[in-house]
Design a protein around this nucleic acid. Structure first.
Length: 266
DNA sequence: TATAGTGTTATCGG
DNA sequence: ACCGATAACACTAT
C-alpha cells in the first residue's frame, strides 16, 4: 500500500505521537526486516534515547535521535506505522491497509519501540518487505516527488529510452512514485505509459509535472493513493473516469499498468 | 491449490 | 560504465 502519500502520513504520525519520548524497550528480533543488523544491535543503539525529528524523502523515512544513530524506516509493500497509547488509543495513518483493520490486535508486528509511559510505536508488515536500519543512506534517492521543481522533473524525465512509466518509478531519478501513483499521473497528463522518455515533448513534461504535484497533494489530503480517481478502476473491465472508455492493461516497466486507450493513446 | 501483488535490489544482457 | 529488463525476496488474500 505505501507510496509517497502513505509514507508522508506515517511520518506525520511519528511526528505527532512518537517524538521526545524516552525509549525503554525495543523489539528488533525480526532479522529479515532489521537486516543487516544482528538482533539486539538496533535495540542497544536506541535504549534510553528518544526520537527528536521525523523526516521523509520519497518512500524512505528516518528519525534523528537525541543521543544515538539515525533510525531509518521503510514500509516496503505492506508496512504501516501504528502508535498505541497506554490507554489503548491508537494513532495510525488511516484505513488504507489491505490486510484489514488493526483493531488493536497488532498482527504482523515486525518492530516496536516502547516508551517510558507505556506507549508503543509498531511497524506492522505482513509481507516483511519493510526495513528498519541504523544510519540509512538516503543520498542515492532522487529529488522528492512531492516537492520536485519543473526544471528538475524535466531533467529526471528527459534523456533515455526507458518507457516513461519505468522512469517515474525509478527512485534514483525521482523519489516517491509507486505503481498506482504512476498510473494516475500518466492518466491525468494523457500520456501513454510505454512512451519512451526521449519521445516526450516539453509540453508533455510540463503536464506530467503538474499532474504529479496535483495527484500527490490530493492523495496526502484524502488519505492515500487509493483515493485517486484512476486507482479504483485499475481492474479488468474498469472504466476511464474521464471518458468511460474501458481501460486496457499490460506490463510496462515490469509492473501491471492500466491506461485509457482513448485519451492516452500516444 | 494457484496466482497476483501498492517496493527494492542483485544480476544479466546489450 | 550506463541503461533497461528480469527474477527474487516473504507472505497474504483471492
Amino acid at each position: 500500500m505505501p507510496e509517497l502519500p502513505e509514507v508522508e502520513t506515517a511520518r506525520a504520525v511519528i511526528e505527532r505521537a512518537a517524538l521526545k519520548r524516552r525509549i525503554v524497550a525495543v523489539d528488533d528480533t525480526d532479522s529479515y526486516v532489521c537486516r543487516p543488523h544482528p538482533p539486539g544491535q538496533i535495540r542497544d543503539a536506541l535504549l534510553g534515547t528518544e526520537l527528536t525529528e521525523a523526516h521523509r524523502r520519497g518512500k524512505t523515512m528516518w528519525c534523528d535521535t537525541a543521543t544515538g544513530p539515525v533510525l531509518g524506516l521503510h514500509l516496503g509493500m505492506s508496512g504501516k506505522i501504528v502508535v498505541t497509547e497506554a490507554d489503548g488509543t491508537e494513532v495510525d495513518g488511516g484505513d488504507y491497509w489491505a490486510y484489514g483493520r488493526t483493531n488493536g490486535e497488532h498482527r504482523f508486528c515486525r518492530f516496536s519501540l516502547t516508551f517510558a509511559d507505556g506507549g508503543v510505536l509498531r511497524l506492522l508488515d505482513p509481507r516483511r518487505l519493510a526495513r528498519v536500519r541504523l544510519d540509512p543512506n538516503v543520498d542515492d534517492l532522487g529529488p522528492d516527488a512531492a516537492t520536485i521543481t519543473a526544471a528538475r522533473f524535466a531533467r529526471a524525465v528527459g534523456a533515455g529510452r526507458a518507457p516513461v512509466k519505468a522512469r517515474l518509478l525509478d527512485q534514483h531519478a525521482l523519489a516517491g512514485v509507486g505503481n498506482l501513483l504512476a498510473d494516475d499521473v500518466l492518466w491525468r497528463a494523457g500520456v501513454n505509459p510505454a512512451r519512451p522518455v526521449d519521445a516526450l515533448t516539453d509540453a508533455d513534461r510540463r503536464r506530467l509535472h503538474r499532474a504529479l504535484r496535483a495527484a500527490i497533494d490530493e492523495a496526502v489530503r484524502d488519505g492515500g493513493v487509493h483515493t485517486l480517481p484512476l486507482v479504483p478502476e485499475r481492474r479488468p473491465g474498469g472504466q476511464c473516469p474521464r471518458d468511460h472508455t474501458i481501460l486496457v492493461h499490460a506490463t510496462v516497466g515490469g509492473r501491471t499498468t492500466y491506461w485509457c486507450p482513448k485519451h492516452q493513446a500516444g
